[in-house]
């Protein structure tokens, strides 16, 4: 018991725990839609593209993650827009914009001599550095997205399963599409705080992919995914604390272990193809 409670005497550890759990829930929920809509690449792309937003926040001496959020949401909407308005596939649109955005970020950083400590935090996650203000943003975003998903659950499910028929039924397909992109962007930037930009995909995709090994019911899938996300976050955080490894790595490795267990012990091997990113015809 002491083993679990001792670290929590530190306020930064309390914030870290609240923050990671919150992010674990959020990433698992949004990640379920990401996996179902096969948007894993967009999570990765937005995470890397957010570099420019964070660098911008750094230059302007504003809150990194607030600026990063706004910037990345704009980037996500622009990716969606480019895909819709030009004859460019979504993958290609992501490829073009995330690399461009990341290049802008690198240009700013190389000019500025970013403190390496900040950069390491950004790349690998620095969960122990979450400030009370950061925590408010994390909790606020999580509550906001939870409320949106709860109120428009059936609409988002319809859109995810069959966007064209959703439109026939009169649902605002474009609004749903862009809202989903915006929610993915916010989730990605926020998750960057705990797992870092390189491992964001882990928190976004692995819990949902693990849950897909066990069930074909969407509600069970969402609950399992959240369960796995929270477990990865909490176990990862303690591993990070006691073993002194970057939180991003320990959280991602815990998630990966859950996936491996699910893969080995569930009797649903078909889903492995999707989890690995293969597209069905």
């Amino acid at each position: 018991m002491d083993f679990l409670l001792a670290p929590l005497q530190f306020p930064f550890m309390q914030r870290a725990l609240l923050g990671t759990v919150s992010i674990g829930i959020l990433a698992a929920l949004i990640g379920t839609f990401v996996v179902l809509r096969r948007l894993a690449f967009i999570g990765e792309g937005l995470a890397h593209g957010s570099l420019a937003g964070l660098a911008l926040g750094y230059v302007l001496h504003w809150d990194l993650y607030l600026v990063g959020n706004i910037y990345t949401v704009a980037l996500a909407l622009f990716i969606g827009y480019l895909h819709e308005k030009s004859k460019v596939s979504l993958d290609t649109a992501i490829g073009i914009l995330f690399s461009t955005s990341m290049a802008i970020g690198i240009a700013i950083i190389s000019n500025l001599k970013f403190y390496t400590k900040d950069l390491t935090g950004y790349l690998f996650g620095s969960v122990l550095a979450i400030t009370p203000f950061d925590l408010n943003i994390i909790l606020g975003a999580t509550v906001l997205i939870l409320v949106i998903l709860t109120f428009f659950y059936k609409e988002f499910v319809f859109y995810a399963f069959d966007p064209e028929m959703a439109e026939v039924v009169g649902l605002p397909r474009t609004v749903l599409h862009y809202s989903m992109l915006a929610m993915i962007a916010i989730t990605v930037v926020i998750a960057t705080q705990t797992v870092g930009v390189i491992l964001v995909t882990a928190l976004l995709v692995i819990p949902a992919a693990s849950a897909l090994q066990w069930t074909r019911s969407l509600k069970v899938l969402l609950s399992l995914s959240v369960g796995f996300g929270v477990t990865s976050a909490v176990v990862g955080l303690y591993l990070s604390y006691y073993l002194n490894i970057a939180s991003g790595a320990s959280i991602a490795l815990t998630a990966a272990t859950i996936f491996l267990m699910s893969f080995l012990f569930s009797s649903n091997p078909i889903n492995v193809r999707r989890s690995l990113g293969f597209k069905e015809k």
Binding site: L36, V157, A160, F161, D162, L212, T215, R216, S217, L218, L221, I270, N271, R274, E280, K281
Partner: peptide
């Protein structure tokens, strides 16, 4: 051909 793995039942 629909997404064969989408976790949704006939009823849903």
């Amino acid at each position: 051909s629909i997404d064969q793995e989408f976790p949704i039942s006939v009823y849903e």
